[in-house]
C-alpha cells in the first residue's frame, strides 16, 4: 500500500510542555486507522498539525504522490489538497439548515466570485441527497442544524466531510455522546467511507475501535507507544500500564 500521509519526527510544545514528541505516523491510501490513547496523549494535536491549525517546532508532514510539504500550506490549502477534518466538539453551522451546511461543503469552486456569479451545478441536489442519505438526515435537510440532536450533528459533520470528497478524513471522537445504536451507524459510515479513501479515527471507546476492525496506533505523551491490530496492542505491556496506570 502506498503512503498517502507521512508524519515524521514531529514535535510541538506549548509553553515548554511537549504535547507531541518526535511523532511519526504513516497512513496508507484507502486505509482505515484508529488512533487511541489516554486523555492528553496528543491525538487532537496530531490532527491540528496535519490540518495546519498548529505549526510544529520540528519534523515533516508529507502528503500525496508528489510529496508536498503540508507545513508550508494554509488551512484552506490543506483542505483543498484533500484532507477533511471532523472536530472533537461537533461544529456545524447551527444557524443554517442541514442542506446549506452540506452545499457549503460540496466539492466545488471556492472563490468568492465563483459563488456569486457561478451557476449552481445541476447535480447539486443529487449530490446533497447522496450525502444526506448516507448520514440519514434526508428528512431533516430543511431543518436548522442547531435543532439537531447531538448525534445527528456528529453525522452532519461527517456528512460535510464526505461532501468535500477528501482523500483523507481525520475524525476526532465521532461517537462521543452517542447511543449504542447511533455508534453502530457511525461505525458503518466510517468503514464504508474508508473503502475509497483513508480514514483516521480517534476514539476512546474500545468496543467502537474493535468494530472498526483495523490497524490501531496507540499514542502516549505525544509519541507512538504501540501499533498493530487491536489484540496485538492490548497485549502490549506498555499499553496496559498506560491505561491501567491512570
Amino acid at each position: 500500500m502506498s503512503t498517502l500521509l507521512e508524519v515524521s519526527g514531529v514535535s510541538v510544545s506549548f509553553d515548554g510542555f511537549k504535547a507531541i514528541n518526535n511523532l511519526s505516523i504513516q497512513i496508507g491510501e484507502a486505509e482505515l486507522r484508529a488512533v487511541i490513547g489516554p486523555n492528553g496523549a496528543g491525538k487532537t494535536t496530531f490532527m491540528d498539525i496535519v490540518t495546519g491549525k498548529t505549526r510544529p517546532d520540528e519534523g515533516y508532514v508529507i502528503w500525496g504522490e508528489s510529496s508536498v510539504n503540508l507545513l508550508t500550506m494554509s488551512e484552506s490549502q490543506i483542505a483543498l489538497a484533500g484532507i477533511g477534518r471532523k472536530f472533537q466538539r461537533p461544529t456545524v453551522f447551527e444557524a443554517q439548515t442541514v442542506r446549506e451546511n452540506i452545499v457549503m461543503s460540496l466539492k466545488n469552486p471556492r472563490r468568492p466570485f465563483d459563488l456569486l456569479f457561478g451557476r449552481q451545478a445541476d447535480d447539486t441536489e443529487y449530490r446533497v441527497r447522496v450525502v444526506s442519505d448516507e448520514i440519514g438526515l434526508t428528512d431533516a435537510l430543511d431543518q436548522t442544524s442547531g435543532a439537531l440532536s447531538h448525534g445527528q450533528k456528529q453525522w452532519l459533520e461527517i456528512g460535510m466531510l464526505l461532501a468535500q470528497d477528501p482523500r483523507l478524513l481525520l475524525v476526532d471522537e465521532p461517537a462521543a455522546g452517542m447511543s449504542p445504536a447511533e455508534r453502530e451507524h457511525t461505525t458503518d459510515l466510517l468503514v464504508r467511507a474508508a473503502k475509497t479513501r483513508a480514514v483516521v479515527v480517534v476514539e476512546h471507546d474500545m468496543d467502537f475501535v474493535r468494530r472498526l476492525n483495523c490497524k490501531v496506533t496507540v499514542l502516549h505523551q505525544g509519541s507512538v507507544l504501540a501499533e498493530g491490530s487491536l489484540d496485538h496492542v492490548t497485549k502490549n505491556k506498555d499499553v496496559v500500564d498506560v491505561y491501567l496506570g491512570r
Binding site: T51, K53, S74, E75, S76, A79, L80, G84, R85, F87, T91, F93, E94, A95, Q96, E100, V103, M104, S105, R110, R111, P112, L115, L116, Q120, M160, Q164
Partner: peptide, 26 residues
Amino acid sequence: GKLGSVIRAIRDDETRVRFLGYHVES
C-alpha cells in the same frame, strides 16, 4: 445563496470555514 451561506458561516466560526477549504480572508 451560497456566498451568503459562507459569509454567515465565517461570522459564526471562521476557523471551521477554513477547514472546509475556503480562503476566509478573500
